[in-house]
């Protein structure tokens, strides 16, 4: 398994496409248990990140993802801005100086990303946040190496699993038991991140 700078660029662009496509659904999920802006936040932020990536050329994947992270941090706001921003910033640090990522290197980035989300947001697995998706994906990668198809499946399954949970962090937590029965919007946007990864890897490999 190898991910070139070109594929990593495609990943960022594809994430953006997915966020645009699912913007309304993401906001609807957020409206049910939050304030209804997650789709707009994601769409706004990743659009800017995609523009940034398109306007520049990168050999260094670290530099590319640092730019993506800074763009997210400065354009998204809300809870998801610092969280996605920090995630990609930490990953970028791990990917610094590389123009291609093998399974181990990619996993290091994901590990760093999850660490960043945890430190920033102080949530744990099961709190019905984006971490409910990121943590199992990371665990699987650490154990078996990167399998993007598998990561995609796990992300989808784990996003689904947030439906039955009671939110412990973020706005949805204010609803207490009433947060049950709805998928966490950040979990779904995270699922889209790994769905994008599987797609671009497959296209890049073929």
């Amino acid at each position: 398994m190898e991910l070139s700078a070109a594929v990593m660029k495609q990943w960022a662009l594809r994430i953006n496409e997915k966020m645009q496509e699912h913007k309304d659904k993401l906001s609807e999920l957020d409206q049910a248990i939050g304030d209804g802006d997650h789709g707009h936040n994601m769409a706004r932020g990743f659009q800017e990140a995609a523009n940034k990536v398109n306007d520049s050329s990168y050999d260094d994947i670290g530099t590319m993802y640092k730019d993506i992270a800074s763009t997210l941090i400065s354009k998204v706001g809300g809870a998801s801005g610092p969280l996605y921003g920090t995630a990609f910033l930490k990953a970028a640090n791990a990917w610094k100086g590389r123009d291609v990522l093998d399974s181990e290197a990619f996993t290091e980035g994901i590990e760093a990303a999850v660490g960043g989300i945890e430190t920033r947001g102080k949530a744990s697995f099961g709190d019905k946040t984006m971490l409910d998706v990121w943590i199992p994906v990371r665990d699987e990668m650490k154990e078996r190496g990167v399998d993007t198809e598998q990561a995609n499946k796990t992300a989808a399954k784990e996003a689904e699993a947030t439906i039955d949970r009671v939110a412990k962090k973020g706005r949805a937590s204010y609803l207490g038991e009433r947060s049950k029965g709805h998928m966490d919007p950040g979990a779904f946007s995270s699922q889209l991140v790994f769905e994008a990864l599987a797609e671009v890897y497959k296209e890049g490999a073929s």
């Binding site: 304030d35 209804g36 802006d37 707009h40 936040n41 706004r44 941090i73 400065s74 354009k75 998204v76 706001g77 809300g78 809870a79 801005g81 610092p82």
Partner: peptide, 12 residues
Amino acid sequence: SGEVFTSPTPDQ
């Protein structure tokens, strides 16, 4: 001021 009901970003 952030977007409506969205915290402003750190750079602002």
